[in-house]
């Protein structure tokens, strides 16, 4: 076994320091060491998007990031999306639009949507579908997800213009 090392990064604004082996993925460390289990594991090879987190402003699949690579990074996970006890527009739109069934893909899709709206505040249906193509959902057929993303974008736009 290779030596464990100390890795320091911020998660949802909090500085954390963990001790890990190089072979531990960021996903494993978030879930098992930091108990941030909102980030899910669906395939462990980057094909389902359930483990999506935002790393230094970019969405990444945390199953394909080594924890040691996160040294100095700023991370945002599903646990950091709501503002205190208030849901953000995307979360609220998912609930209002019934855009989840089993809910296992939901954290990844919400995080990916946050990244999308940051980059493109007013996405077309095609933009949404392309941006979310790396997030598999097996329950909903995507219809209500796409609508919820667009509803959230609209709400945010209205809020921004007021």
């Amino acid at each position: 076994m290779s030596a464990k090392r100390v890795v320091t990064f911020t998660v949802n604004g909090d500085q954390v320091e963990i001790l890990c082996e190089p072979r531990q993925s960021l996903l494993e460390v978030l879930r098992d060491d930091l108990d941030l289990t909102g980030t899910k594991e669906g395939c462990s090879n980057g094909n389902c998007g359930a483990c999506t987190v935002i790393m230094d402003g970019r969405p990444v699949v945390s199953c394909l990031v080594l924890a040691v690579e996160a040294e100095g990074a700023e991370l945002r996970t599903i646990e950091g999306v709501a503002c205190g006890s208030t849901l953000d527009e995307v979360q609220a739109a998912f609930l209002e639009g019934a855009a989840l069934q089993c809910g296992i893909c939901t954290p990844g899709i919400i995080v990916q949507t946050e990244a999308l709206l940051e980059e493109n505040p007013n996405p077309t249906e095609d933009d949404v579908r392309f941006y979310l193509a790396g997030n598999l959902c097996r329950c909903t057929g995507y219809d209500k997800i796409v609508r919820a993303v667009q509803a959230a974008a609209e709400k945010r736009q209205v809020a921004a213009s007021n």
Binding site: R31, G38, T77, F94, L95, L100, G103, T106
Partner: peptide
């Protein structure tokens, strides 16, 4: 009617515990 599901808040915030989340 279309009320918001009761487990909704847990599921959009990552709080809902699935099988692999058990520690």
């Amino acid at each position: 009617t279309r009320p918001i599901r009761h487990d909704g808040a847990d599921k959009v915030t990552g709080r809902a515990r699935y099988g692999a989340d058990i520690q």
